[in-house]
Amino acid sequence: MFGTVSGEVEVNAPASVVWEVYGSLKLAAVIEKGFTDVLQKIEVVEGDGSVGTILNLVFQPGVAPFASYKEKFTMIDNEKRIKDSIVIEGGYLEMGFDRYFLRAEIIEKDEKSCITKATIEYELREEYAANASLVSIDGPMAMMNIVKTHILSTTN
């Protein structure tokens, strides 16, 4: 079973300013600080924020059906402002997913505003089809709003 979900948030800030956060490890720091009701911590396991960087996301007890998962940055395009990551250990993979992929895009509207877009693509074994309900754009939407609030508070 394959699936895709996505969501967008408009940000009244230049795409280049927004990408400074999304295109670096600043994203993990902003999310960790602003999403404490969901995340205990985000650890950099390996890397400097470039392709190949591995993060360990540890959730608050009882918030997710798993304690943590590791994701790896697989592509970062600074010109197109796109960052791809994939779960490589734990989390969704323990729940019957063969693939759980997340793309973050910053789409310029004009020189003073942009759209942040998150897309989740997943592949789930048929015998775990009921776990498709675990896939939700709500978490990425909340994270994009946290980053939006952070950016607007630091640029105004």
Rank of each mutant, 00 (worst) to 15 (best):
F2D: 05
F2S: 06
G3L: 09
G3E: 07
T4K: 13
V5Y: 01
V5I: 11
V5G: 02
S6F: 13
E10C: 11
N12C: 10
N12D: 12
A13Q: 02
A13N: 01
V17Q: 03
E20Y: 00
G23R: 04
G23L: 08
L25D: 06
L25T: 11
K26C: 04
K26T: 09
L27C: 06
A28L: 13
A29S: 13
V30I: 06
V30M: 00
I31H: 03
I31Q: 04
E32R: 11
K33L: 07
T36F: 09
T36R: 15
T36Y: 08
D37L: 11
V38K: 14
Q40Y: 08
K41I: 09
I42K: 15
E43N: 14
V45W: 11
E46C: 09
G47N: 10
D48Y: 09
G49T: 04
G52P: 01
T53H: 11
I54V: 15
N56H: 11
L57G: 01
L57K: 02
L57F: 15
V58Y: 07
V58K: 09
F59T: 03
Q60N: 14
Q60H: 10
Q60K: 14
P61W: 04
V63F: 12
A64S: 10
A64L: 10
A64M: 15
P65M: 05
P65A: 07
P65I: 05
A67P: 05
Y69F: 15
K70A: 03
K72V: 07
F73G: 00
F73L: 07
T74V: 11
T74E: 02
M75K: 14
M75E: 10
I76W: 04
D77A: 06
E79C: 14
E79T: 13
K80Y: 00
R81I: 08
I82K: 12
I82E: 07
D84Y: 01
S85K: 11
I86R: 03
V87C: 00
V87T: 03
V87M: 01
E89W: 09
G91L: 04
L93S: 00
E94Y: 00
E94N: 12
M95R: 02
R99I: 02
R99L: 05
F101K: 07
R103E: 05
R103W: 02
A104C: 14
E105Q: 14
E105C: 12
E105N: 13
I106C: 07
I106V: 15
E108S: 14
E108F: 08
D110E: 05
I115S: 02
T116P: 07
K117Q: 13
K117P: 04
A118M: 12
I120N: 05
I120V: 15
E121H: 09
E121M: 12
L124C: 03
R125D: 15
R125N: 15
E126Q: 14
E126V: 12
Y128L: 02
A132K: 01
S133C: 10
S133H: 12
S133A: 13
V135G: 04
V135R: 00
V135Y: 00
S136Q: 14
S136W: 11
G139H: 14
M141N: 07
A142W: 07
A142E: 13
M143N: 11
M143A: 15
M143E: 14
N145C: 13
K148M: 09
K148H: 12
K148F: 08
H150W: 10
H150D: 09
L152T: 14
L152D: 12
S153A: 00
S153V: 00
S153Q: 02
S153T: 01
S153G: 01
T154Q: 10
T154M: 08
T155L: 13
